[in-house]
């Protein structure tokens, strides 16, 4: 029998009560939906997606700031995933400004090297991505280059979710590539079963199984089911570069209040690369779209199909909220793969 089938059988045996596990990674959701893993799990084992999509959790105010820069004639470079995220008035795709899609921050620097115009890289992403930006800033990019840091870090958000208790989470599947960089020692502070999982369907099933085993044993620890990339310490060099350029800051996430220490702000020594300082940006509070439940989806208390607009008014071509825009957004993924609840 193939390994996945064996594990699936064991998961059915071990799930002896109602359980909810949360993962915090859009790439996990993508694997789960693409391979229809929920359809092979027992009915009483629920997998919910938490705030694991960096584009989705970026508050509207930060999108609006990028749109304002674009309308002021600044060249905006960013990941393609961000283009259709609706701001207060339109999106980067529809704004008519000079928008460049880049593979990564280093390509945005190349854009800046070829022009005299100001180039701002809209820098979203968790701890997987932030070190790439830090390393680039340390290469002394040209003066006309700066970044709008929308980076967020995962552990403070998990702390918030656990302290709040709204989503009733029995275990966490930790993001494999965030942990590749950061290691998992920081997660040992949380008294809840946790497992670092890889991204193949078999690896996710293995992760679920290890969580169930912890629950059966009545213990809370961090198991590592992705050891080919993840160690307890992570990539120390990448962490050092990240903290050299950024410091932790208190920021809001879309769907969440201000979470202490969950943002990454550029340190004073590098402020010439901080678009917030350079252009005197002030972020405006979010105006919630009527009917959109992205905030509840991000907190793991609603599913995409609970939304009245899902697949009707709100589609990947006409997204109302960010979760329908990003390739990592739960709504877009469910829309693509027609997931069952």
């Amino acid at each position: 029998m193939e390994p996945g089938k064996e594990i699936e059988k064991a998961i059915r045996t071990l799930t002896d009560r109602n359980l909810t596990f949360m993962h915090v990674c859009g790439t996990h959701e993508s694997t789960i939906a693409r391979s229809a893993l929920r359809s092979v799990l027992p009915e009483n084992l629920k997998i919910v997606m938490g705030p694991g999509c960096p584009v989705c959790i970026t508050p509207q105010g930060e999108i609006d700031a990028a749109l304002q820069l674009a309308s002021d004639g600044v060249t905006i470079a960013t990941y393609g995933d961000l283009l259709r995220v609706p701001g207060k008035d339109g999106s980067l795709e529809s704004c008519g400004g000079d928008i460049k899609i880049v593979q990564g921050v280093h390509k945005a620097v190349e854009v800046a090297q070829k022009t005299k115009k100001e180039v701002v890289f809209v820098s979203v992403g968790f701890e997987t991505t932030a070190p790439t930006v830090a390393a680039t800033i340390l290469t002394n990019p040209p003066d006309n280059f700066s970044i709008l840091s929308s980076h967020r870090t995962i552990p403070p958000a998990m702390k918030w979710l656990l302290s709040q208790g709204e989503a009733k989470i029995d275990g966490f599947m930790l993001p494999g590539h965030v942990c590749t960089v950061m290691g998992y020692h920081e997660y040992e502070q949380f008294h809840v079963p946790q497992v670092v999982a890889g991204f193949e369907p078999d690896e996710i099933l293995l992760g679920l199984l290890l969580l169930l085993q912890q629950i059966q044993e009545g213990v809370s620890r961090v198991d590592n089911a992705y050891p080919r990339a993840v160690t307890r310490e992570g990539n120390v060099k990448a962490q050092e570069l990240m903290w050299k350029v950024f410091s932790a800051s208190d920021v809001a996430w879309r769907g969440f209040p201000v979470i202490p220490g969950s943002g990454l702000k550029i340190r004073k020594a590098f402020s010439q690369y901080d678009a917030v300082e350079k252009f005197g940006i002030e972020f405006k509070p979010d105006v919630k779209q009527g009917g959109c439940i992205c905030d509840r989806v991000l907190r793991g208390i609603s599913q995409p199909t609970d939304c009245k607009m899902f697949g009707k008014v709100c589609t990947p071509r006409t997204p109302v909220g960010p979760c329908m825009v990003s390739h990592e957004g739960a709504c877009k993924i469910w829309h693509l793969y027609h997931s069952r609840t």
């Binding site: 390994p3 594990i7 064991a10 990941y79 593979q103 990564g104 921050v105 280093h106 390509k107 992403g125 997987t128 991505t129 070190p131 790439t132 390393a135 590539h177 590749t180 960089v181 890889g198 078999d202 690896e203 293995l206 199984l209 290890l210 089911a225 992705y226 050891p227 080919r228 990339a229 992570g234 990539n235 990448a238």
Partner: peptide
């Protein structure tokens, strides 16, 4: 492992084999 055009970690064959070992134990 490459992410957004940057190598973010070195992988070793041994660590790859370690994953197989976990599967075997399970």
């Amino acid at each position: 492992l490459v992410h957004v055009g940057f190598a973010i970690q070195r992988l070793s064959r041994e660590e790859g084999l370690e994953t197989l070992e976990i599967f075997r134990e399970v």
